[in-house]
């Protein structure tokens, strides 16, 4: 055992396990919040409006409401975090090397940051359009 697993590698594995546990909790809680927010999002956008979807003016009127704006921003953040943690879990299931895991983590962090930044910019732009 000592010949293949050094004390350091065991500590690294323990740290990875702790980190995986924390990320699992983040994914679980973001998922539970998403159940509420996504439920509201789908009802508000697809089941309340006559015709199923909001037209241009209806969308602008909708996002002009500060409460809706806040909920939509929260939705973008939670959905992105939850989705990319899920992608990471699937990627780790393919048994990547330690180096590949590092690349996956960085790539997902960049994709996540860009997605959230774009979502926030879009939400702010739409609210400005709504006047």
């Amino acid at each position: 055992m000592e010949s293949t697993m050094t004390r350091r590698s065991l500590e690294e594995m323990a740290a990875q396990r702790d980190r995986a546990g924390s990320l699992w909790l983040v994914q679980a809680f973001s998922g539970l919040f998403l159940v509420i927010i996504l439920g509201l999002h789908m009802i508000a956008h697809h089941f309340v409006v006559e015709g199923g979807l909001r037209d241009y003016q209806q969308v602008l009127d909708y996002v002009a409401n500060p409460l809706v704006f806040g909920v939509e921003v929260l939705f973008v953040i939670l959905a992105t975090v939850h989705a990319l943690l899920g992608v990471r879990a699937i990627a780790l299931d393919t048994r990547p090397s330690v180096g590949a895991i590092r690349v996956i983590n960085w790539a997902l962090a960049v994709v996540g940051a860009v997605t959230i930044a774009y979502g926030l910019w879009l939400a702010v732009s739409l609210q400005r359009l709504a006047g």
């Binding site: 241009y56 969308v59 602008l60 973008v76 959905a79 992105t80 989705a83 990319l84 899920g86 992608v87 997605t115 774009y118 979502g119 879009l122 732009s125 739409l126 359009l129």
Partner: peptide
Amino acid sequence: TVYLFLHLAILSLLL
């Protein structure tokens, strides 16, 4: 996850 990115792209049409 694919739909999330597609959804953001489609919402850009509003702009």
